[in-house]
Amino acid sequence: MIIDESLPGKEECVGSLKNILDALYVLNGKWKLALILCLVQSSKRFNEIQNEITGISSKILAKELKDLELNDFIKRNVYPTTPVSIIYEATEYALTLKNVIGELSAWGEQHREKVKQSMRKQS
């Protein structure tokens, strides 16, 4: 409930909605923020990422990594070893999501029980 705050005007709501839709466009999906968080902690190989984020298939992981690379959230480094080594790392741009990830984490912790109940209802 909003207390003692005036409601935003129509223009402010429309602007906020556009901003949110833009953010969701590049961060949509179940895995993107988890992948960014995983790579912010340290650079990793494909299999290391897949082992750390349980439940993601190889096909989806490959697609999500490509999307994140296209949007400059991660960098794919290819090293000419035998066999070729590919290491993924978070970019400086990904670090701009630090506050967003922190707020989502705090919200998730605060509302964990309600979210679990909702998940049980869906299954």
Results as ranks from 00 to 15, higher is better:
residue 79 Y to M: 11
residue 94 A to Y: 02
residue 27 L to F: 03
residue 101 I to Q: 05
residue 52 E to A: 11
residue 36 I to C: 01
residue 54 T to P: 01
residue 85 S to I: 10
residue 30 K to I: 06
residue 59 K to R: 14
residue 1 M to C: 03
residue 77 N to M: 10
residue 122 Q to E: 14
residue 63 K to V: 02
residue 113 E to I: 10
residue 101 I to F: 08
residue 19 N to A: 15
residue 68 L to Q: 03
residue 119 M to G: 01
residue 82 T to R: 08
residue 46 F to K: 02
residue 41 Q to L: 11
residue 86 I to S: 04
residue 41 Q to G: 00
residue 73 F to Y: 15
residue 56 I to H: 08
residue 42 S to C: 12
residue 111 H to G: 01
residue 49 I to Y: 03
residue 73 F to E: 05
residue 53 I to F: 09
residue 120 R to C: 03
residue 106 A to L: 10
residue 4 D to Y: 08
residue 79 Y to F: 13
residue 70 L to C: 13
residue 113 E to T: 09
residue 119 M to I: 15
residue 44 K to N: 03
residue 2 I to V: 15
residue 68 L to H: 05
residue 42 S to R: 15
residue 27 L to V: 02
residue 45 R to G: 12
residue 94 A to Q: 04
residue 86 I to T: 15
residue 103 E to Q: 07
residue 13 C to M: 12
residue 87 I to P: 00
residue 46 F to Q: 01
residue 97 L to F: 08
residue 66 K to W: 01
residue 7 L to V: 09
residue 102 G to I: 07
residue 1 M to G: 08
residue 53 I to P: 01
residue 34 A to I: 01
residue 7 L to R: 11
residue 54 T to F: 13
residue 75 K to G: 02
residue 19 N to P: 00
residue 48 E to H: 04
residue 122 Q to H: 12
residue 78 V to Y: 03
residue 25 Y to L: 07
residue 107 W to A: 14
residue 92 E to F: 05
residue 92 E to M: 05
residue 24 L to W: 11
residue 105 S to A: 13
residue 94 A to E: 07
residue 92 E to R: 13
residue 100 V to T: 15
residue 79 Y to L: 14
residue 51 N to C: 05
residue 26 V to R: 10
residue 75 K to T: 09
residue 36 I to Y: 01
residue 108 G to E: 12
residue 55 G to V: 05
residue 55 G to A: 06
residue 109 E to H: 08
residue 55 G to I: 05
residue 116 K to R: 14
residue 3 I to R: 11
residue 49 I to T: 03
residue 87 I to E: 06
residue 11 E to A: 13
residue 8 P to N: 10
residue 121 K to P: 00
residue 101 I to K: 06
residue 43 S to P: 05
residue 60 I to K: 08
residue 87 I to W: 03
residue 46 F to D: 01
residue 71 N to V: 06
residue 20 I to M: 10
residue 23 A to D: 06
residue 89 E to T: 12
residue 119 M to R: 13
residue 34 A to H: 14
residue 107 W to R: 11
residue 63 K to F: 11
residue 30 K to C: 03
residue 18 K to Q: 10
residue 88 Y to E: 01
residue 2 I to T: 14
residue 70 L to A: 09
residue 46 F to T: 01
residue 65 L to P: 02
residue 81 T to F: 02
residue 42 S to E: 15
residue 24 L to H: 11
